[in-house]
Write a protein that binds this DNA or RNA. Structure first.
Length: 600
RNA sequence: UGUCCGAUGGUGUAAUGGUAACACAGCGCCCUUUGGAGGCGUUAUUCUUGGUUCGAAUCCAAGUCGGACAGCCA
């Protein structure tokens, strides 16, 4: 295929944040665009994070910049190394082959350099340059950690104290709350610099118990924005940190650590979700009051993703895991990146989805159909077609010789000629799906029925002569005759019959455990009107069947995708072993017959 | 209650003072050895009121509705 014939690349995305970046690039405001993706390692990444990853890495990718992966780990009591590892893996999976060249990592163990910028002392930690290895956690590179800057952030706090812009406060958490609500100054607000310095040093040294004192910024307790009413900068927490161990017993708050981490890393555009909008004045205040010599980062906010038929908050996802309502963070029904990956969705599909939904400041609920469309569109192009029967009914072709086997040609992917062909065995005894036979067919039923004809895909046209039942009336087998001239190339091959169904040869079929996943909730908005989201869990979100599959599926590969013709897309699950196939249903094919049948 | 933010078909977005468009969903037709895919067509939209203007989704004002925040969480 010549390059001209290739489908045009999707136009570069455009939104209000990219407009700003584009303007800055045109003005040459920064030497390089530098974003960051900064999750707290207190849970697994979900599809909402995927939106953020696509935005931050997308901007770096489109404007020739860098996007740092950073663990925002300033609260030791909630974080864990398990999450650091999963976040690294998930982020890397999503950007692989796309923006991996723009991924900012740092040398393992490296902390900020103390440098001189414009004649002033400065802290800086640059990513490893483009040319070097950027695979996370392999060899010499690793993500950034806010906790690697605790020394520098402490220095910045001391600087604020010395400038009279921060003070040690002895109010209890409850009192602090009350004072802030009432716009009252803390009685400790006007301590001397010397006393503040002494107390802050002793806080760091571990002289005081948790909650006894805090470091607060001295801004304006009457500000209409509560975040400017002398916010906390440091709290005492005698707790072991997953990355810094027991070195610290005071930890900076998000607001203090985040802007400074951005600055230290040389971030130009700090993009976060809408709930931080009211924090932006504080973000700016801290940076502007520290006499920093390099250009300051700026914060931009966008609406987080809400998706129908699922929940997104880490707290609720954690609840589903802990209460064993799902099998784990990577249960294929979970909206986590690891769950979505295990389900069989590709990173390309997820990226296309992120592209399609756009970036705005409006809090809407995205229809899952948009996600499902992106998944089907991607899988349709790449999946190998296979014949498999989920709920088998036996069919005997009475005019087909016993013991005879034919190897019939079947295309691997009608969308992609280069995917080639394979052989599927045909014999006298077959399985078809229960749904493809109706003894009393409804109107417009194009499949097999008593006395009716149907095409067996890639094989013959058959007619159902007899329905054999057991004593209870259960269908045991369907006895059919084939038009033996009707297979491809035969005399009657072009005869038109209304329906075509899939099948497998009973003698050659192999078994596979198929896990049929459906949406986790029965309601588009599980928490609407404050109801308990667990009360609307879909009891049928997982059904397990043993499918009869064409024999070529024994070589199924974990990185390939399969379409069981006329049914759904499947991917190999990690529970598979030699001789034991386990397949996850990623998503069904569109089923216009089901829709038609529903109209009754 | 205060502060901030937002409002365009059923849903999500575009139009940056000049013909309201795209995708998904829906509906209809064509095609089809997948009731898949594809093709064609179609339904349906600027929160309200006032103002500025030759002209407003866009600018201004007031209102209405919705969201976020008000942790020593991030």
């Amino acid at each position: 295929m010549s390059p001209e014939n290739k489908a045009p690349a999707a136009p570069a995305p455009s939104d209000f944040i990219r407009d700003v970046v584009e303007k800055h690039v045109a003005e040459k405001k920064y030497p390089q665009i530098h974003t960051r993706f900064p999750p707290e390692p207190n849970g697994y990444l979900h599809i909402g994070h995927a939106k953020s990853i696509c935005l931050n890495f997308g901007i770096a990718h489109e404007f020739g910049g860098v996007c740092n992966l950073r663990m925002d780990d300033t609260n030791p009591t909630k974080e864990d190394i398990e999450y650091v590892d999963s976040i690294t893996e998930d982020a890397n999976w999503l950007i692989a082959g796309w923006a991996d060249k723009n991924l900012g990592l740092k040398p393992k163990g490296k902390t900020p350099d103390t440098i001189t910028s414009n004649g002033k002392a400065d802290f800086q930690l640059a990513p490893i340059p483009n040319s070097e290895l950027r695979t996370p956690n392999s060899g010499s590179a690793e993500p950034f950690y806010a906790s690697d800057y605790f020394d520098q952030i402490y220095e910045y706090a001391v600087a604020l104290v010395k400038k009279g812009k921060a003070y040690v406060c002895d109010l209890t958490p409850e009192e602090t709350d009350e004072y802030r609500r009432q716009a009252k100054e803390s009685p400790y607000r006007n301590r001397s610099v010397e006393e503040n310095l002494d107390l802050f040093t002793r806080m760091k040294a571990g002289e005081f118990p948790d909650g006894k004192r805090s470091l607060r910024a001295k801004i304006d307790v009457t500000s209409p924005n509560i975040w400017m009413r002398d916010p906390l900068l440091y709290r005492i927490r005698h707790a072991e940190h997953h990355h810094t161990g027991d070195k610290w017993c005071i930890y900076p708050m998000y607001d203090f650590a985040h802007c400074l981490s951005d600055y230290i890393e040389g971030i130009t555009h700090s993009i976060c979700t809408l709930e931080f909008e009211v924090h932006r004045p504080l973000y700016d205040w801290i940076l502007e009051n520290l006499d920093l010599p390099r250009p300051l980062p700026h914060q931009y906010e966008f609406a987080r993703l809400s998706l129908g038929y699922t929940v997104m908050s880490k707290r609720k996802l954690m609840q589903l895991v802990n209460e064993k309502l799902v099998s784990g963070w990577d249960d294929p029904r979970m909206p986590t990146i690891s769950g979505i990956r295990r389900r069989g969705v590709t990173p390309e599909a997820l990226r296309n989805f992120a592209y399609n939904i756009g970036i705005t400041k409006y809090n809407g609920i995205t229809d899952v159909a948009v996600l499902e469309h992106a998944i089907r569109e991607d899988l349709n192009k790449r999946a190998f077609r296979r014949l498999a029967v989920l709920r088998p009914v036996k069919v005997v072709i009475t005019n087909y010789p016993e013991g005879k086997t034919e190897e019939l040609d079947a295309v691997n992917n009608p969308e992609d000629e280069s995917a080639g062909k394979r052989k599927v065995p045909f014999g006298r005894e077959l399985y078809i799906d229960q749904d493809d036979f109706k003894e009393v067919p409804p109107p417009k039923f194009f499949r097999l029925k008593p006395g009716g004809e149907v095409r067996l895909k890639y094989a013959y046209i058959v007619k159902c002569d007899e329905v054999v039942k057991d004593a209870n009336g259960k269908i045991m087998e369907l006895r059919c005759t084939a038009d033996l001239d009707s297979k491809t190339g035969g005399a009657t091959a072009n005869r038109k019959v209304k329906g075509t169904i899939h099948w497998v040869s009973a003698a050659h079929a192999i078994d596979a455990e198929c896990r049929l996943y459906d949406r986790l909730f029965t309601e588009a908005e599980p928490e609407k009107d404050g109801r308990d989201f667990k009360s609307v869990l879909n009891p049928h979100s997982l059904e397990v069947v043993t499918a009869k599959c064409e024999p070529s599926l024994k070589d199924a590969k974990p990185d390939l995708r399969y379409q069981f013709e006329r049914l759904a897309y499947f991917a190999l699950d990690k529970d598979s072993a030699a001789g034991k196939l386990v397949l996850n249903r990623t998503i069904t094919l569109k089923d216009t017959w089901a829709k038609e049948a529903q109209k009754k």
